[in-house]
């Protein structure tokens, strides 16, 4: 297996830490046992097949999973029982699977809602919108268009832009490649890379599309049937040829 604990010795600042997470939907166990951490400035990828419990893990950090056991800590603070709105104000922004943009509102209105916590500081709000438009120029062109009419890729950019509007410390990104054409996925990842370069933002990324995700990741966790089965440095993994084996758990 991979070098499991090498990185845990690094004395970087711990931003997010999850211990013993378990999530149930009624009788169905979506997440059995997840332990992971994200250090400041890192990009961590959570890989796994469909139904492995990736999204449920992300949603429990965001505070919208129904019943969860275990502990979620952010900057040393226990946030397990916090409401989603409280969690956002601490600096955790989420881009959910399916993007969940508001299709009946315009691009601008979606962004304004993303900056809800800064609503009273008009100049900050305006500046952040400008930053988002710089990162995703296409959104600036679509400014007053109704979001439901955007293409899939544009909707993904809007969802990311909306999450950035709250000026988060960490971004939770759920399958940005989902349902998009390869060239568009390429573009989205370029944007994410640029974002990393510009802002040094901490990112927890959930993906099925392993190769793409690994290209921007510092560290990787593998999730299978609701459990973390292995983890390691992304750079180590890229050299390994047998990673497909690990991925599919053969």
């Amino acid at each position: 297996m991979l070098l499991k604990h090498t990185l845990e010795k690094d004395l970087k600042m711990r931003m997010l830490e999850i211990n013993n997470l378990q999530v149930n939907y009624g009788p169905v166990i979506a997440v059995k046992k997840v332990d992971l951490f994200v250090n400041q400035g890192e990009t961590v990828v959570l890989l796994g097949a469909n139904g492995a419990g990736k999204s449920s893990t992300l949603l429990s950090i965001a505070g919208v999973a129904n019943k969860l056991l275990g502990k979620v800590e952010f900057s040393g603070k226990d946030i397990t029982k916090f409401s989603p709105e409280k969690i956002l104000t601490l600096g955790i922004a989420t881009v959910p699977e399916n993007r969940d943009i508001f299709p009946d509102l315009s691009v601008k209105e979606n962004l304004v809602l993303g900056g809800y916590i800064n609503r009273k500081k008009n100049n900050i709000l305006q500046d952040t919108i400008e930053e988002v438009y710089n990162l995703f120029p296409i959104l600036s062109e679509r400014n007053s268009q109704v979001a439901g009419t955007l293409s899939g890729g544009e909707q993904q950019m809007l969802a990311i832009g909306r999450a950035l509007m709250s000026k988060p410390k960490i971004l939770l990104l759920d399958e940005p490649s989902l349902g998009l054409a390869p060239t568009i996925v390429e573009k989205i990842y370029e944007h994410i890379e640029q974002l990393k370069k510009n802002t040094n933002l901490t990112i927890l990324l959930v993906e099925q599309h392993a190769m793409k995700a690994l290209s921007i990741a510092d560290r990787v966790y593998f999730l299978r049937l609701g459990e973390i089965v292995s983890s390691g440095k992304a750079s180590d993994l890229k050299e390994k040829t047998d990673f497909k084996k690990i991925y599919f758990g053969e």
Partner: peptide, 24 residues
Amino acid sequence: STLGLAMRAAATNFNMTRMLGIPA
């Protein structure tokens, strides 16, 4: 108004509005 927008957004996806920091 921002509150009006938030209400319209909540009508579409209540949980998503909460994930943007808008109090339920």
